[in-house]
Design a protein around this nucleic acid. Structure first.
Length: 462
RNA sequence: GGCGCGGUGGCAGAGUGGUCAUGCAGCGGACUGCAACUCCGCGUACGCCGGUUCGAUUCCGACCCGCGCCUCCA
């Protein structure tokens, strides 16, 4: 029994898919006008884990994550760059795919792009106009009439009168109500546009997600997720559009990830305090970044700092140490253990990854203990379980040596290091400990740490 | 101002009405030529004040502090 915290009801609920055995989920993806930052990575990883976990529990998951490839910010950036907006978006989509792959984020089942769904958006807008939920304004924009939907605000718990009273809402002449939002924006001469019954224009931001999710998943689907800052107005508006257009409940479970913070402030584009995934990957291995992200619950906010990332690296290293130099037993020879059960118990409770990681550490401890006491089979079995559970979180799938010895731009090659290790072994054999220690110290200065064991000496980059 | 979330040991971070989170760092011991790795062990943790209770970090209320949303942002 899986429980998920539903933003809509503000409580954990037992998850019951609409269609038994199948899960239909949608996540709001990126607006591709710039490189992804850590906040994006957070959401990407969080929902990647959700989909992996649900699949591991036997669900047939259809995971749709859109790409917003038309938007004012994109047009502005392309204009600044002096390039067609499609060049910009193609480049950023490629970059995003690269970043995702590095972080171990599996491709979604479908990745619809807004520009491929203009017709569906227009159809939906038409329906909304026909049912008086939307209107064509004097400036040729089409707006959704917020007052026509009595549940408006149910997700973000906002009251319409409070929103209307809010001094920060821009009162546009053309809108009937200041809280109304654009479904279709009329294009000026020379602007990027598509033909529509209301003249040339481009879609508003929110309508694309309603059109794409409905088209790919149906009027009602199981899970809709996204970043914390999408709850209002984006998701609120999606609900309004979709429920008015289809007449059905839009989404059963709403999931929102917590924010990444830097110095106690939310990492965001507007504050400019963001770190892109690629710049962080210049310093930290991708798996460490992912481990850092899954080390805290998806709904809680996490503080980005070098120290926290470094600590995540040390914690992950402990897990890989346990796996090093061991041949895991074949999966089919390892049945479910109490560690698996504990892991599932924790993950069933709203995807408690930090708790699940504690199970992984328990497994590492078991492996080390078994090996120390010569129980090779037990160790190999536990190693299999560790790798199997790690896979659900998207970690621990590398060869441990590859993890420890990944080239971080040091001057020494693996061959150099092996040669020095041999030289040290010779010195030790000759009881020249001073000489042996000198070699070890020299390597340490280059960031190479040696681990001796009965089987020999292994090395890793610090 | 409205709405929402959170304050756990040196740090990170789960969780629970009454024996254990877990990791990092630290300390002691074992192992080691010495280290590293590993193993064993250690540390008056639950913002503050009341209330409920046999018993509260966990439930209720007040208070203090921090954060988020209310505008484009994952």
């Amino acid at each position: 029994m899986i429980k998920i915290y539903n933003t809509l009801t503000q409580q954990k609920e037992t998850f019951t898919p609409i269609e038994p055995g199948k899960v239909r989920m949608y996540m709001c993806g990126m607006t591709v006008y710039d490189y992804c930052h850590l906040g994006h990575a957070r959401v990407l990883v969080a929902f990647d884990v959700v989909s992996r976990y649900l699949r591991s529990r036997g669900y047939d998951v259809t995971y749709v994550r859109n790409i917003t490839d038309i938007d004012d910010k994109i047009l502005r950036r392309a204009e600044e760059n002096g390039e067609p907006f499609t060049d910009l978006t193609e480049r950023m989509i490629d970059a995003m795919h690269e970043d995702e792959a590095k972080l171990g984020v599996l491709p979604p089942s479908k990745e619809p792009r807004a520009t491929d769904y203009i017709a569906e958006m227009i159809a939906m807008i038409k329906t909304l106009i026909e049912s008086d939920h939307a209107y064509v304004a004097d400036n040729r924009d089409v707006y959704f009439s917020v007052e026509s939907f009595e549940d408006y605000g149910k997700l973000s718990k906002k009251k319409l009168e409070d929103l209307l009273a809010g001094a920060r809402i821009d009162v546009q002449e053309a809108k009937r109500s200041p809280a109304d939002f654009a479904l279709w924006k009329a294009a000026d001469e020379g602007e990027v546009s598509w033909p529509s019954p209301w003249g040339n224009g481009r879609p508003g931001w929110h309508i694309e997600c309603s059109a794409m999710s409905t088209h790919c998943l149906g009027d009602t689907f199981d899970i809709h997720g996204g970043g914390p800052d999408l709850m209002f107005p984006h998701h609120e508006n999606e609900i309004a559009q979709s429920e008015c257009a289809t007449g059905h409940r839009f989404v059963n479970t709403w999931m929102h990830a917590g924010a990444i913070r830097v110095n106690k402030e939310k990492m965001s584009k507007s504050l400019g305090n963001f770190f892109t995934i690629r710049e962080i990957l210049e310093t930290y291995p991708p798996e460490v970044v992912r481990f850092f992200l899954v080390s805290s619950h998806y709904r809680s906010q996490v503080d980005y700092s070098e120290d926290n990332l470094a600590e995540a690296g040390r914690s992950l290293a402990r897990l890989y140490h346990a796996l090093r130099g061991i041949e895991p037993m074949r999966s089919e020879d390892v049945s479910e253990t109490e560690h698996d059960q504990r892991f599932v118990e924790l993950m069933n409770d709203d995807f408690n990854c930090p708790g699940a990681i504690s199970v992984l550490h328990g497994l590492a401890n078991d492996i080390n203990q078994h090996r120390r006491e010569g129980r090779e089979d037990e160790a190999r079995q536990a190693a299999r379980v560790l790798i199997r559970l790690g896979d659900i979180l998207g970690i621990l799938q590398q060869n441990p040596d590859a993890f420890f010895q990944a080239d971080t731009g040091g001057e020494l090659t693996a061959e150099d290091i092996e040669a020095k290790i041999q030289a040290r072994a010779d010195a030790r054999k000759a009881k020249d400990f001073a000489g042996a220690d000198r070699i070890r110290d020299e390597l340490a200065e280059q960031g190479i740490i040696l681990d001796d064991s009965r089987e020999g000496t292994s090395w890793r980059r610090s």
